[in-house]
Design a protein around this nucleic acid. Structure first.
Lengths: 259, 259
DNA sequence: CCGGAGCACTGATCTGGATCAGAATGGCAG
DNA sequence: CTGCCATTCTGATCCAGATCAGTGCTCCGG
């Protein structure tokens, strides 16, 4: 079995062989493999030199809101959430962090949100000081970081539409679609055509509990459950087990998600 | 009366005399006066050289989603909204653009959202090509733009908590609080203490219709109206007329907004 | 002056999703 | 194996906010 470090390096090398990869997919508006995909060979060497693998187990806190940030990291495996909460305890997940994503905002002294692992995670971590030193000397790299931040903003705005205006069923469908697109990406970004990869009903892992889904969608656990069974009964998805689903017809799911 | 151009220049000069202003207020997490506040004297000269005033009237479209971007701009007066909508017409305002804000994301070829004026507006516009050329040659300026994008992301995440987890009353209160903080900023950023400035019940302008408020808060017009009258009856705010309010006790309003 | 359009507001009713309650399942420790 | 706990799921009920319907106000053009 590979260690996280090896895996990370492998990915960087692979993505760099296939010349200038676009940062965004024209079909799904998702970014591909985050920062790593944009690194040049010399940058890659620098980052690898200072990287080390970190592990977190499900439920563990990676960052606490307001605490000083000590490292940045690429997610190798697992999933995390960034949380905001009202003072009386209602909470809203404001960001999903999946394999290929970067934690967290560059040049922000203190963490703007808490980050918590939703499953066991493997990170490729970079010490904050050394990471920022490299970025400061490389305007082009900073430009790419700016672009990534703008992509995050895009996604946040898309999610505001979901939270403010979509029904429970549309919310759940949109979420499953997001997972489908993200899982697909990370496994084979740009190597096969979108449609081809979506053709077969591939199995998609849901790396979190129904409760976390609810907190991400602005719903309750019960409502998420009901919508999941409703989508299953209507043949939109299959649910072989609690943490997996397959989708026989992605276009149908897109329709359910509305946008 | 001043023209927009004169006003914009005046502000730039004023903010630059008072040495390195912080970009964020420690009390309210809002950014102050956007890009302008961070410009150095030589940058200011460059920007002024290529700026020209643009006017838009209420309801006019400033950007159409997906269309190529031809200019960036600082807002001098008035208010605009950025919109996302489902394919069946439900719409959600994902961003408020108020005086001091910057339109729009740098280095994004095509507009990610439509932008529409909600009142008559005066902009200080910069042609896209020339603006980007300046930024590309100035890594430090790009760094500041990155920081602004991250601030926008912060605000978007705060709004996700509101959309997903707050009640109608809390939503309306949060919105009024946002307006109060923003109006106050633009008039006197960092020149007086927050508390002092908030002490008197200053009158705050609401630069949009109830319908736009609803689209920003993920509610209906009717619910916004009801919550406004409810807050008035409970003495949280006064409503001298439809597009103004005063707040006798900001802390009370903060409590109603929950966070 | 009137008439019409747009906006703010209010009352009555309806309903999607929250809340409450409990059953079924599965994983794990002993 | 048994017992415990966390999680998923389902049913019954409730209620915040949507929907529907109508009033009053202001602005504006003729």
């Amino acid at each position: 079995m590979l260690t996280g470090r090896e895996f990370c390096v492998t990915r960087i090398e692979k993505t760099n062989t296939s010349a200038s990869l676009p940062q965004k997919c024209q079909h799904c508006t998702m970014r591909h493999a985050g920062l790593c995909a944009t690194l040049t060979a010399p940058e890659m060497v620098q980052f690898n030199a200072m990287s080390h693998t970190k592990h977190f187990s499900a439920g563990q806190l990676i960052r606490l809101e307001g605490e000083p940030v000590s490292f940045y990291a690429n997610v190798i495996s697992g999933a995390a959430k960034t949380i905001k909460s009202t003072h009386d305890g209602r909470q809203q997940i404001v960001g999903l962090i999946l394999p290929g994503d970067f934690i967290d905002r560059v040049f922000v002294e203190h963490a703007p949100c808490s980050v918590e692992a939703m499953s066991d995670m493997e990170l490729c971590a970079y010490p904050r000081g050394r990471f920022e030193a490299i970025v400061k000397k490389d305007p082009d790299l900073e430009h790419r970081l700016l672009t990534l931040a703008l992509d995050d903003l895009d996604q946040a705005e898309e999610w505001m539409l979901l939270l403010g205006r979509k029904t429970a069923r549309e919310k759940v469908a949109s979420f499953l679609l997001l997972l489908a697109r993200r899982s697909h990406h990370f496994s084979c970004p740009h190597l096969v055509s979108e449609r081809q990869a979506f053709a077969g009903p591939l199995t998609i892992h849901i790396p979190m509990t129904r409760n976390n889904m609810a907190d991400y969608l602005g719903l309750t656990t019960e409502t998420v459950c009901r919508q999941m069974t409703s989508l299953r009964k209507d043949g939109v998805i299959d649910l072989p087990d609690n943490h997996c689903f397959t989708c026989p017809d992605i276009e149908r799911l897109e329709q359910e998600a509305d946008r």
